[in-house]
Simulated scan of single mutants.
Amino acid sequence: MAKIGIFFGTDTGRTRLIAKQIAKKLGDAADPPVNIGRTTLSGFLAYDALILGSPTLGDGELPGQSVGLSQPSWEEFLPQLAESDLSGKVIAIFGLGDQKKYPDEFVDAIGLIHDALVSRGARVVGRWPIAGYEFAGSQAVDGDEFLGLPIDQINQPVLTEARIDGWLAQIEAELMP
Rank of each mutant, 00 (worst) to 15 (best):
V118E: 04
A122L: 12
V67C: 04
G126C: 08
K25S: 13
D28P: 10
E61F: 03
S66C: 14
P79V: 06
G132V: 01
Q80V: 02
K101L: 08
L41Y: 15
I93E: 01
L86I: 08
P63Q: 04
R38L: 13
F7D: 11
E105Q: 07
G95L: 02
G9L: 09
V90P: 04
S119Q: 12
G27W: 13
E134D: 14
A109P: 03
K3D: 12
A116D: 14
R120A: 14
L81K: 05
F135C: 02
I110M: 02
L96M: 04
A30M: 05
L69V: 05
T15H: 07
D48M: 10
G137K: 09
S119T: 10
R127G: 14
V107M: 01
P79S: 06
A122Q: 12
T12D: 12
L81R: 04
G97I: 00
L81Q: 05
L112N: 00
A46R: 15
Q65P: 03
L57D: 02
K100C: 06
T39W: 00
K101G: 15
A116W: 13
S119I: 06
E61C: 07
F135A: 03
D85T: 14
V118H: 03
E76C: 00
L57M: 06
P63H: 02
E61L: 10
S73R: 04
A82C: 04
L96C: 05
L81T: 05
E76A: 00
L45A: 15
V125Y: 14
E76F: 12
I51S: 10
I110D: 00
S70W: 10
Q99S: 02
G53P: 02
L96F: 06
A122G: 13
S84L: 09
G111D: 00
G95Y: 01
P72G: 11
F44Y: 14
F44K: 03
P72T: 08
V124H: 06
W128R: 15
